[in-house]
């Protein structure tokens, strides 16, 4: 195990070296998960940096990141292992002479069968096992970080199948027996919360909810990742994004979209967030036509003329 993460503050500094700004909450829970050897279940809206967190942890600890993207219909032959039949067949063909040699010296049929039985292991060995991400993580000689991305997209059966791996870090291959991990991998599961995960899965994980960052946090991320953007514009841009998130959109802009937008602003050499720039670049932030229209109507319209309002004492309540 790496000795990098020996307190929550080192988690924080190491992650920030990887250009990932971790809040106290994230740092504490990552540290706990590392120390307790428990998988970490990160939930939250799309694009708040759940996947990025896994990548940052992998590079901070210098471990290999093994990623398993979940989708509907994902099964164990794609996630865990598969026998490589064609290779097995090829080997039997090519080794036929050798087999004849070995078996030819046998005096009786029974002896030949016994001899063959001794060689049986050759054909069902890990040589013919096609390693898929999870098996790769378990058999790896070096400790790894496993990212099981968007687990909520996989079927409920697949969740059940993960349980053995998550609690004991071992898998059972009928022909080979149980394979146990040499090094406990650091497992991170992410979920976009599109469906409820099973209790059994949640029980085995530590839970981390990552929400959209507040203004300061997001500004810090933008400044770190897009250093070329001038500070004033960055501030304006982040304020604008935060305002968009408060508006009722079909899909709120995520941090990654904020960063794309910031990059776009740099590329366009924008100096100010004026109407023309917004018109041009807003589609980087909002991906639904309806949202775009709405944003154009609401947020880019000139600020409403302050209407003469009778200053009765209920004035402030009639505002909205």
């Amino acid at each position: 195990m790496s000795i990098l993460f020996d307190s929550t503050s080192t988690v924080k500094t190491e992650l920030s070296k990887q250009k990932y700004i971790a809040s106290d909450e994230i740092a504490t829970i990552v540290y706990l998960s590392h120390k307790l050897g428990k998988p970490l279940l990160a939930e939250g809206p799309a694009g708040v940096g759940k996947t990025e967190l896994a990548k940052a942890i992998a590079s901070a600890t210098g471990r290999e990141l093994i990623r398993l993207q979940c989708y509907e219909g994902l099964d164990e032959s794609k996630a865990l292992y598969e026998w490589e039949y064609s290779k097995q067949l090829l080997y039997t063909q090519l080794l036929r002479d050798k087999l004849n040699d070995t078996l030819g010296k046998a005096e009786s049929l029974a002896e030949a069968a016994d001899k063959l039985a001794k060689e049986e292991d050759v054909f069902f060995s890990s040589r013919f096992l096609l390693q898929r991400p999870l098996l790769k993580a378990i058999l790896s000689d070096k400790p790894t970080v496993v990212l099981i991305d968007e687990i909520d997209r996989a079927d409920a059966e697949f969740e059940a199948f993960l349980l053995e791996i998550l609690s004991d870090f071992q898998v059972s291959v009928p022909e080979l027996g149980t394979l146990t991990a040499k090094h406990k991998p650091f497992v991170i599961l992410t979920s976009n919360n599109t469906r409820e995960l099973s209790e059994a899965l949640k029980r085995r994980c530590l839970y981390l909810f990552i929400d959209y960052p507040n203004l300061q946090e997001e500004l810090a991320v933008v400044r770190l990742k897009v250093p070329d953007l001038n500070p004033k514009l960055a501030q304006q841009a982040v304020e604008f994004v935060q305002k968009l998130r408060k508006a009722d959109m079909r899909k709120s802009p995520s941090i990654s979209e904020t960063l794309d937008w910031a990059n776009a602003l740099v590329a366009l050499n924008a100096s100010n967030l004026d109407k023309a720039v917004l018109e041009e670049t807003l589609s980087v932030l909002l991906k639904h036509e309806a949202d775009l229209q709405k944003a154009k109507r609401q947020l880019m319209a000139p600020p409403p003329q302050s209407k003469p309002r009778n200053n009765d004492e209920f004035g402030r309540f009639s505002g909205n």
Binding site: D24, I29, S33, L208
Partner: peptide
């Protein structure tokens, strides 16, 4: 206190 709260929260609460 904050660490204490988070350690309880991460282990006990699994749902937003």
């Amino acid at each position: 206190r904050e660490h204490f709260r988070l350690s309880l929260r991460a282990t006990l609460i699994k749902d937003v």
